[in-house]
């Protein structure tokens, strides 16, 4: 039995210290997942806290310790989607609707060969990711940044594995299309040493 499995089982039996340990181990992952999904630091922080509060309250409903990771992501992704829906019903700023082209188009539109440095690329990617449809974005983040297997993502989203892979396909295509629209082609992408 692995050490983490033992901790999860202890937490399932009501061991608060074990849960604290789990939270310490998983806090950064869940926060980064929420941050990549929402692209908002404070909201991601709130979602992460809520995720662990809910996890603590319903730890007894977790049947298998092996499912803990997927189970935690289910809570986090549900909260992220709820937040996203609420935010779309009550948009707070018109700035969100701006064409992100203003970030990159000016320096690159006229000269695609200009190198895009790491920080700038990160910001562009971050912005482009928020333009993806939710169901594609969540698959991309879970697969590429959280390292979940396709069958785990399928469990989290309650979809078949093939559906998840199709969403990944369309997500990548859409991401490529957005970046191309902003004149970011592969020749332009170089990195700082």
């Amino acid at each position: 039995m692995t050490e983490e499995r033992q901790i999860i089982e202890n937490a399932m039996q009501g061991d608060g210290q074990a849960f604290n340990l789990l939270m310490r181990n998983w806090y950064k992952r869940i926060f980064n997942f929420a941050f990549r999904y929402l692209n908002q630091y404070d909201e991601a922080s709130d979602i992460t806290q809520q995720t662990f509060i809910r996890a603590y309250q319903s730890m007894h409903s977790l049947k298998e310790a092996d499912n803990f990771r997927a189970w935690l992501y289910i809570i986090a992704s549900n909260l992220c989607r709820q937040h996203s829906r609420r935010a779309s019903r009550h948009p707070t700023s018109g700035l969100d609707d701006q064409d992100p082209g203003h970030i990159a188009a000016e320096p690159h539109a006229d000269s695609p060969e200009t190198p895009i440095f790491r920080q700038e690329w990160k910001e562009l990617l971050q912005e482009a990711m928020t333009r993806l449809p939710e169901e594609q974005r969540i698959v991309l983040i879970m697969k590429e940044y959280e390292g979940l297997k396709f069958h785990e993502i399928a469990t989290v989203l309650g979809q078949s594995e093939n559906t998840v892979k199709s969403r990944m396909y369309y997500g990548l295509k859409a991401l490529k299309k957005i970046l191309t629209k902003w004149n970011i082609d592969r020749e332009a992408i170089t990195y700082e040493a």
Partner: peptide, 16 residues
């Protein structure tokens, strides 16, 4: 190229 978006610093977890 996707891995060029590294993790951000997460806030400290709260103490239950």
């Amino acid at each position: 190229q996707l891995d060029q978006w590294p993790d951000v610093e997460a806030p400290e977890p709260p103490v239950l």
